[in-house]
Every structure is written in C-alpha cells, then in structure tokens.
Design a protein around this nucleic acid. Structure first.
Length: 91
DNA sequence: AGGGTGACCCGCT
DNA sequence: CAGCGGGCCACCC
C-alpha cells in the first residue's frame, strides 16, 4: 500500500540527475497538487538518505531546506549540473 | 479524536 | 517589488 509519503519518495527517486522538481510538482505527481506542504513535512520528518531530497526545491527556485544544510544542497545541485544563482535554482 | 507541526503555495496589501 | 497572512494537505503525539 503506497501512502502519500511513499508516493512522494517514489516520485523523488525518479528525479533524473541534473534536474530539479518543485514541492508542488512532486505533490501533484504524488496525486495531491495541494499537498506541497505535506511533501515538506514527510521529507523533513523522514529525510530519507535514499531519496534525492536535494533535488526538490520550491516553486520560487529557492532550495527550500535541507537536513544536511541548504549550502550543501546547493553544492550538490551544482555538481549535478543545475544552474544556481544567488542561492536560487535556474531550471 | 483532537491538536500541533512543517523543507509550501497563493493572494492581497 | 517586497512583506505579511491565510489556507491547503499529510504525519506525529
């Protein structure tokens, strides 16, 4: 049985390298476009190391938050090939 | 069963 | 353009 959190994990895990998904996008793909908040809650409470949580950003392009440090998140994203300027992701 | 929290989003001022 | 508030959903205690 796939709970919303499980779906979120599945979607996030499917994020290809060098690409970034917004919480709203993940929530929508998970089945609830308005559950962006729930996505953040799930990742925050679980912050599963097996999930590419660093590839999930806000709709504004901000990295949002990261359990290991948002700076680290930005660094990782840049390594992935994502364009980041002034702490914001340019996709 | 109810209340509280959170890495959010949208709208208004 | 920037800042503030309200509302949405899911999970935990």
């Amino acid at each position: 049985m796939q709970s919303f959190s499980q779906k979120v994990y599945a979607v996030v895990s499917k994020i290809p390298r060098g690409k970034v998904f917004t919480y709203a996008e993940v929530a929508k793909l998970a089945g609830n476009p308005k559950a962006a908040r729930a996505v953040g809650n799930i990742l925050n409470n679980n912050r599963n190391p097996k999930v590419f949580c660093h590839r999930v950003i806000r709709s504004d392009g901000s990295v949002g938050g990261f359990a290991f440090g948002n700076s680290k998140k930005i660094k990782i994203l840049r390594s992935e090939g994502v364009n980041i300027q002034n702490g914001k992701v340019i996709r």
